[in-house]
Simulated assay, not measured.
Amino acid sequence: MDNRAMRRARAEPGARAESGPQLAPREPAALGEPDIARVASAFADPRRARVLFALADGRALPAGRLAEEAGVAASTISNHLAVLRDHGLVTVEQQGRNRYYRLAGSEVEGVLEALAKLAPRAPVTSLREHTRAAALRSARTCYRHLAGRLGVRVFSGFLDAGWITGGDGLHHPATSGDRLSAPGKGTRYRLTAAGADALAAWGIAPGALSTERPLRYCVDWTEQAHHLAGPLGTAFADRCFELGWITRGRVPRSITVTPDGQRALAALGVTDIGPGNVGNGNVRNGSAGNGNVETASTPSSSPGPGPPISPAE
């Protein structure tokens, strides 16, 4: 076969040369164990950790806002965001002249939650940290559901109204085996038929209103009581945002109850929940479900610094 014929044979699909060695296809490289140390290095820097926790409520935030949360200059945050992108922890989208970052998926949230269970609590050492801690204690999102005093009081309201059954809303570590700042497992809460009807009237999607499967809940770190989690907790929080009952605060994950929200939640006996008022009542150990929440160790007359905030909540 001359050179012209060989070139034509190579160019034609399915054509084979009449002679010459046939190369075996290259096998893919063998993969070993997951390189945990590599991805863990992205979490190890405290500035990048603050960026990830600022994004933990599901929002997309611009680089400038993330620089504020990380406590670095705008020129520096780009390097940290590049590291997070390279490790697959955040994604970026362009909106006009700004680039917005968000967590890459629920797997990243799960890692943050697991690390928060293992990490020691950082003390509050500045006025800025105290202000942030107070806002988060009052009302916040724990991933995609309501937490803090507001979340606990809403859960107590659901129990009082008979919408949820199966427990008293309190943390009983000796009998439940639950841990603070972690998903609860020791209490079998369920949504009642009355609760499903009432929440459907509020516009909650039917898929979140199962009366058969147990409800998920978290043990709230700051209140040491239960708040609603899982699909129903997420659906309720999303609906509150849609209806304008709550809005996001300046501090990441903090939320504020609007006047419309105060009126709506008052039907559950959840009152005094306007800006600066969440948690002015009392739920003391042994008396959950009255719509007012406070741990026995944190008197309502003295806001104080309180316990350090769990980053995962």
Rank of each mutant, 00 (worst) to 15 (best):
A5F: 02
R7F: 13
Q22C: 07
L23C: 03
A24Q: 09
E27Y: 04
E27A: 15
L31W: 02
G32E: 09
I36N: 01
P46Q: 05
R47V: 05
R48S: 13
A49R: 15
L52F: 03
F53Q: 12
A60P: 02
P62W: 11
E68M: 11
A70P: 09
V72C: 15
A73T: 14
A73H: 12
T76P: 00
I77D: 00
H80M: 01
H80K: 00
D86L: 07
D86W: 00
D86F: 06
E93F: 01
G96K: 07
E109T: 14
E113I: 09
A114G: 14
A122D: 10
R128P: 00
E129T: 06
A133I: 03
R137T: 05
H145N: 15
H145E: 11
R149F: 07
S156Q: 15
F158H: 12
L159P: 12
A161T: 08
A161G: 14
L170C: 03
H172N: 08
P173R: 08
A174K: 13
D178A: 04
A182I: 05
Y189S: 05
R190C: 12
L191M: 08
A194N: 15
A200E: 11
A205R: 14
A205T: 13
P206Q: 07
S210C: 04
R216V: 06
Y217I: 09
V219D: 04
D220S: 15
Q224P: 00
Q224W: 02
H226E: 12
G230K: 03
T234P: 00
F236G: 04
A237W: 04
E242T: 15
T247G: 12
R248F: 00
R248A: 13
P252I: 09
V257P: 00
T258A: 00
P259M: 01
A264R: 08
A264P: 03
A266Y: 03
G269H: 08
V270Q: 02
G276I: 06
A288M: 06
N290G: 13
S297Y: 05
S302E: 11
P307C: 07
S310H: 11
P311T: 05
A312N: 10
